[in-house]
Simulated assay, not measured.
Amino acid sequence: MLYFLDLMGTAVFAFSGILQARRLQMDGFGVLVLAAVTAIGGGTMRDLVLGVQPVFWVTEPQYLLLIVATCVVSLFLVRASSRHFARKLLLWADAVGLATFTAIGVNKALAVGAPPIVAISMGVLTGVGGGVLRDVLAREVPLVLRTEIYATACIAGGVVLTGTLYWGGNHHIATLACIAVTLLIRLAAIQWHWRLPVFGAGDETKPS
């Protein structure tokens, strides 16, 4: 199940990179780069931090082939969509990838013996890392650094997964619960514009 979810998350995040590249009117190579960075960037950073060598896509090139295939298929689909629809689709595709990769990151960290708090951190890194690189290359402030509920959703999902396993829950159920919680929180934040409090708001210096 985890392998299937990992492939699905790779395709979805690659698609979100393609949508961003389309918005910026990049050429074919730019589309491929942005798709690849978004899809495998977070997992690459996770493996490097955990000391997993080589990183996953070096020994499993099917991830790179999946990214290329997603680019080829998506180019035809994206061209037929309006810019407003593509923007909405980007947010929803990003949310699905975020939830899936969070669960993958937590599980991989636990598999190498990391404690729960480190596993949750690796879930956040896996979930947001690719999107951060994508937004940086697109010259935008990454979603994780804005006031939107983004990394917070990953933390909540990671806590659910590790907590369920700690109390003896089924691994598959814990993973699905993590994905569901992360996805629901992120989609709710998109739908109802949930925001975190802004640091320093209202602290403007008053004249003496």
Rank of each mutant, 00 (worst) to 15 (best):
D6L: 05
M8P: 00
M8F: 11
S16Y: 10
R23F: 07
L24M: 08
Q25I: 00
D27H: 05
V31I: 13
A36R: 03
V37M: 13
A39F: 11
G43C: 08
G43K: 04
V52E: 08
Q53M: 01
V55A: 03
V55K: 01
F56K: 02
T59Q: 11
L64E: 07
L65I: 15
L66F: 04
I67P: 05
V68G: 10
V72Q: 02
S74Q: 08
S74F: 09
L75T: 14
R79Y: 11
R83I: 13
A86F: 01
K88W: 11
L89I: 06
L91R: 09
A93C: 15
D94F: 09
D94A: 12
A95E: 10
A95G: 10
L98W: 10
G105T: 11
L110K: 02
P116I: 05
I117F: 12
I117L: 13
V118Y: 01
A119I: 09
S121Y: 00
S121N: 01
L125S: 08
T126E: 04
G127Y: 03
V128L: 08
G129M: 07
V132E: 04
L137H: 00
A138V: 04
A138P: 03
E140P: 00
V141N: 07
V144M: 15
I149P: 00
I149F: 12
I149M: 11
T152M: 13
C154H: 05
I155E: 04
A156C: 15
G157Y: 05
V159Q: 05
V159W: 05
T162E: 02
T164P: 01
L165T: 06
L165D: 04
L165V: 07
N170G: 03
H171P: 02
H171Q: 11
H171Y: 06
I173H: 04
A174K: 06
T175E: 11
A177E: 07
C178A: 14
I179F: 05
A180S: 14
A180E: 03
V181G: 02
T182K: 02
I185L: 13
I185M: 07
A188G: 15
A188R: 03
Q191C: 03
Q191I: 02
H193M: 06
P197D: 05
V198K: 14
F199S: 13
F199M: 14
F199P: 01
G200V: 10
A201M: 01
A201T: 00
G202E: 07
S208N: 10
